[in-house]
Amino acid sequence: MTDEKKPLPLDTNSLAVMRTLLANERTFLAWCRTALGLLGFGFVLEKAGLYLKHFVPDANPLMSQDLGMLSLFALFSGMLVLVGAAVRFFSIEKQIGSKLGRMTPFPEVLVLFAVALVLIISVFSGKVIFN
């Protein structure tokens, strides 16, 4: 008995849909990298503001406050980009993926949860260390 796998019947339309789904995943991951960059930049700015406040006591206090505000802007921008990317990805996945019967965005959900977990742990560890 031979256990041969039958090739899937693929026409040009289904191949184009698959390419579109893969492009959607690549775009989602690019937006996730952008969001992680913004989040990392926000943490770096916050850390610079804390170092400035603790190690350079004669520095202008407005500079430390401005760094704090800029870091909050970068953190919230990163979170907004991540949420926007997820909403866009899942809406396109729902529209196109349902045509192929492919509706398992499990890896993308793992990326979202991993980024959220890193963000939550970073915020809580920063509060514990610096307060």
Results as ranks from 00 to 15, higher is better:
Met1Ser: 06
Thr2Asp: 04
Thr2Lys: 02
Asp3Lys: 04
Asp3Pro: 00
Glu4Asp: 10
Lys5Tyr: 02
Pro9Phe: 07
Thr12Trp: 02
Thr12Arg: 04
Asn13Ser: 09
Asn13Thr: 13
Ser14Phe: 00
Ser14Ile: 04
Leu15Gln: 10
Ala16Glu: 11
Ala16Phe: 02
Val17Leu: 15
Met18Val: 04
Met18Asp: 00
Thr20Asp: 06
Leu21Glu: 01
Leu22Cys: 00
Ala23Gly: 01
Glu25Val: 09
Arg26Asn: 04
Phe28His: 05
Phe28Arg: 01
Ala30Glu: 10
Ala30Val: 07
Cys32Phe: 03
Arg33Gly: 13
Thr34Gln: 07
Ala35Val: 02
Gly37Tyr: 05
Gly37Glu: 04
Leu38Asp: 05
Leu39Trp: 06
Phe41Asp: 03
Glu46Ile: 08
Lys47Ile: 10
Ala48Arg: 11
Gly49Glu: 07
Gly49Asn: 06
Leu50Cys: 03
Leu50Phe: 15
Lys53Trp: 13
Lys53Ser: 14
Lys53His: 14
His54Gln: 15
His54Ala: 14
Phe55Leu: 14
Val56Asp: 07
Val56His: 08
Pro57Met: 05
Ala59Glu: 08
Ala59Pro: 01
Ala59Ser: 15
Pro61Met: 06
Met63Tyr: 09
Ser64Cys: 08
Ser64Gln: 14
Ser64Lys: 07
Gln65Gly: 04
Gln65Thr: 15
Asp66Ala: 15
Asp66Lys: 08
Leu67Arg: 08
Met69Ile: 14
Met69Gly: 04
Ser71Tyr: 09
Leu72Ile: 05
Phe73Cys: 11
Leu75Asp: 02
Leu75Tyr: 08
Phe76Val: 14
Gly78Ile: 01
Gly78Lys: 11
Met79Glu: 12
Leu80Asn: 10
Val81Pro: 03
Leu82Asn: 10
Ala85Asp: 05
Ala86Asn: 02
Ala86Gln: 13
Ala86Pro: 01
Val87Tyr: 10
Val87Trp: 07
Phe89Val: 05
Ser91Thr: 09
Ser91Asn: 07
Glu93Asn: 12
Glu93His: 15
Lys94Trp: 07
Lys94Glu: 08
Ile96Asn: 12
Ile96Gly: 01
Ile96Arg: 13
Ser98Gly: 11
Lys99Gly: 03
Lys99Thr: 11
Lys99Met: 12
Leu100Ala: 12
Leu100Ser: 09
Leu100Lys: 06
Gly101Leu: 05
Gly101Trp: 06
Arg102Ile: 15
Pro105Asp: 07
Pro107Gln: 11
Leu110Asp: 03
Leu110Thr: 04
Val111Asp: 10
Leu112Phe: 14
Leu112Met: 15
Phe113Glu: 04
Phe113Cys: 12
Phe113Arg: 13
Ala114Asn: 12
Ala116Phe: 14
Leu119Ile: 03
Leu119Ser: 13
Ile120Arg: 09
Ile121Tyr: 12
Ile121His: 03
Phe124Tyr: 10
Phe124Val: 09
Gly126Leu: 06
Gly126Trp: 07
Gly126Glu: 09
Gly126Thr: 04
Asn131Pro: 02
